[in-house]
Structure formats: structure tokens, C-alpha cells
């Protein structure tokens, strides 16, 4: 059993924190894991992505092959579309629906969302709006993780939730509580779909 996740977004949106939480949960669950990420110049407001591979068997490649990703997990709708060639036939897209516009030629928002909706399996949500409305403006990425939890078949949602608590523990109880709330908001959204 394997699960390959293409994590993506714009530099500074917190995709590496999502990767850290999933990696923590996967390690705790005794899974094999490889997680390749991009550092350096591309972090400066450009597109960023990370290949996260989980498996019950030994993993060889650090990178996901085209057509191999079981999930695209994206902090930004156009960025989710960027990696379609990597998505497996029955792969799922879990994405924020709120465009992050820092380029002059950003495509038409309605067209971006329509193209996402044309895919067989896509869950999208205005995670930033949800986070803000619930007083969790810095936890939009954890809302997204909660949304993705039911699709991360190799790890129980409760294990991911516990990893959220462990990862944020050094920042204090209030930060842990905020992120657990964010996780639950995202998780409930997917469960109610």
C-alpha cells in the first residue's frame, strides 16, 4: 500500500508545515516515508511544491512519477492545476479555492475553479475564509490538512490530529488548541460532503 501526495502552493503559505505534520504521523504509524521539497530562490513568492510519499513497503524514488500521485494537496487553486499531469487516474484533489494573485497574468478565477470542478475527484474550500471567520488566521494550512485527512488512507485522522498537537506543542497550548480546531473544521467539511 502506498500513498503519493503532491503538496503545492505559493512560497510562504505553509505547505512545508503540512508536510512536517503528515511526516510526523506517518513515522509514528511505522510507515516508510520520503519527502522531497524545494528550498532556495523559488521560495520567494514563486510556486513551491513538495513530493510526499508514504508506503507500507520500502520507497525508492524521492520524486513522484507522472500519473502517480494519489492526491494533489494545494494551498492555492491554480497551483493545484499546475500538477495535473502527476495525478493518478483515481487521484483526488484537495485544494483551497481562494486564488493568491501576485502575478499580472493570473487566469480568470471562474475558469480556474471550473477546470478544478471538471476533475473526477476534487474537494475545494475557502480555507482562508474559514480560518479567518473562526479566529484562526494563521491556521489555514491545517484546515486544508483536516480536509485531506479522510483521503490519507494509510493514516487514521486521529493519528494526524495527534501529530498536529505534537508538532505545535513547543509553541504553547493556545497554538495547539487553535490548530486542532482548524483541523476539525477542515475534517468536518470533508466528512459532510
Amino acid at each position: 500500500m502506498k500513498l503519493d501526495i503532491k503538496l503545492c502552493g505559493v512560497g510562504g503559505q505553509g505547505i512545508l508545515s503540512i508536510a512536517t505534520i503528515i511526516a510526523e504521523a506517518a513515522t509514528e504509524a511505522g510507515l516508510y516515508l520520503k519527502q522531497a521539497e524545494v528550498h532556495g530562490m523559488s521560495q520567494r513568492g514563486g510556486d513551491v511544491q513538495s513530493d510526499l510519499r508514504l508506503s507500507t513497503e520500502l520507497i525508492w524514488s524521492d520524486l513522484i512519477a507522472k500519473g502517480g500521485a494519489d492526491m494533489i494537496l494545494s494551498m492555492e487553486p491554480m497551483e493545484a492545476l499546475r500538477y495535473l499531469p502527476y495525478l493518478a487516474e483515481d487521484g483526488v484533489i484537495v485544494t483551497s479555492s481562494k486564488p493568491f494573485v501576485n502575478i499580472s497574468n493570473y487566469p480568470d478565477e471562474a475558469a480556474v475553479l471550473a477546470e478544478l470542478d471538471s476533475m473526477p475527484h476534487c474537494v475545494r474550500l475557502d480555507i482562508e475564509g474559514i480560518a479567518r471567520d473562526n479566529g484562526l488566521p494563521r491556521s489555514a494550512n491545517v484546515v486544508l490538512l483536516g480536509m485531506a485527512a479522510p483521503f490519507i488512507k494509510l493514516i487514521e485522522p486521529q493519528q494526524l490530529r495527534a501529530a498536529v498537537a505534537r508538532i505545535f506543542a513547543p509553541k504553547g497550548e493556545a497554538v495547539v488548541a487553535a490548530n486542532l480546531k482548524a483541523f476539525d473544521l477542515g475534517h468536518n467539511h470533508s466528512m459532510n460532503q
Partner: peptide, 16 residues
């Protein structure tokens, strides 16, 4: 090893 889905239409480069 090949893509199932073609590159999306509504994507623009986002340089750093």
C-alpha cells in the same frame, strides 16, 4: 510512466 491528465489550461507561470 505517463500522465493520465493533460496539463491544465488555466495555469500561468509564477516566478519567484
Amino acid at each position: 510512466s505517463s500522465s493520465v491528465y493533460s496539463p491544465a489550461k488555466n495555469v500561468a507561470p509564477r516566478p519567484p
